[in-house]
């Protein structure tokens, strides 16, 4: 019995860690620009393919992972330059479409230059090893995910509270114009938000690949959907909400995995997404509404 509880706890916590990081990466941009980045999932894809391309290079794995995350950050920033900046002032719809087009663009670049088929990524042994904890066999990568998430969440909330840039980011999320009138440059804030978004997606990408071992062009869809659901549940504009939403979603997912019979389990996505629609209708601001917000930029 204890074993089962430990197993369930670690499953839910590690999946929740992943989901929370994904959701945070999406919300950091939404919170400031009030715009949804449909190309967010492709940051995970870019991370995977960077790892794949570095396979066989003499670099130690940690360096490869670092390079992959940096590429994700750069891709995040280029999303802003290509899909957001030129149309930001025109309309919400325009930005949604450009980011959707940018996501297709990235995916098809991969089809064009690499391959439509799945590619193995290099992974160190730590992702396949297991340890025994309270009588149950636990994959080490789950513990690694939890540790990684907690370190990142800790660092992130520290930076938001204690650094001037962090305070400026939070200020811009509630009153962008006022922040600018105090001298906070709009471009700095927006670029930083996209860079952070890329950082989260990159780390999530590494951990996600650690679970599945290979990368395909469509890999970004699932993280994007997860991030959508988690942020809708938690509150589109609140960072804490994204984290809460991520863990909650993972808890529900893992519980359904344990409880639902097989033939209903395949409809899990339909259930969760119907739930998302209902949730948005009943509680448009999510569980944690976040800062009372003014205008878009």
């Amino acid at each position: 019995m204890t074993g089962q509880i430990v197993q369930f706890g670690i499953d839910a916590l590690s999946l929740g860690s992943l989901y929370a990081l994904m959701a945070l990466g999406l919300v950091i941009v939404y919170g400031i620009l009030k715009l949804v980045n449909f190309a967010y999932g492709e940051l995970v894809m870019v991370t995977g393919y960077t790892l794949f391309l570095l396979n066989g290079s003499p670099l130690p794995w940690l360096v490869m992972a670092l390079v992959a995350v940096i590429i994700a950050i750069l891709t995040g920033i280029s999303t802003e330059l290509v899909a957001f900046k030129p149309v930001r002032e025109k309309s919400v719809t325009a930005v949604l479409i450009t980011s959707f087009a940018f996501s297709t663009l990235l995916q098809n670049f991969v089809l064009l230059f690499i391959s439509p088929r799945a590619r193995q990524v290099p992974l160190p042994d730590i992702f396949t090893q297991t340890v025994e904890l309270a009588g149950v066999i636990v994959p080490l990568r789950n513990l690694l995910t939890i540790a990684c998430a907690f370190i990142m969440l800790g660092l992130f909330s520290w930076a938001l509270k204690k650094t001037v840039l962090g305070i400026a980011l939070r200020a811009a999320a509630s009153q962008f114009r006022m922040a600018r009138m105090l001298g906070v440059p709009a471009n700095l804030i927006i670029t930083t938000a996209f860079a952070i978004s890329g950082l989260f997606a990159g780390v999530v990408g590494i951990l996600w690949l650690g679970r599945i071992g290979s990368v395909v062009p469509g890999i970004g869809l699932e993280p994007l959907l997860v991030a959508f659901i988690a942020t809708v549940i938690g509150g589109m504009r609140s960072l804490q909400g994204a984290v809460v939403g991520g863990f909650l979603l993972a808890f529900v997912d893992v519980s359904l995995n344990y409880l639902l019979p097989q033939h209903l389990l395949q409809f899990r996505d339909a259930f969760t997404f119907s739930f998302v629609i209902l949730f948005l209708l009943m509680k448009p601001d999510g569980l944690i509404p976040g800062p009372a917000s003014g205008e878009r930029t």
Binding site: Y30, K34, L35, V36, V92, L96, L225, F228, V232, M236, Q266, F267, D269, A270, F273, S274, V276, I277, L280, L281, P284
Partner: peptide
């Protein structure tokens, strides 16, 4: 709904319809 909420719900609707068709 308008703006982001409208788009996310329509996206969710597409996923729901797709999931049902697949299963």
């Amino acid at each position: 709904l308008s703006d982001a909420a409208a788009v996310i719900t329509s996206f969710a609707l597409l996923v729901v319809i797709h999931t049902i068709m697949v299963h």
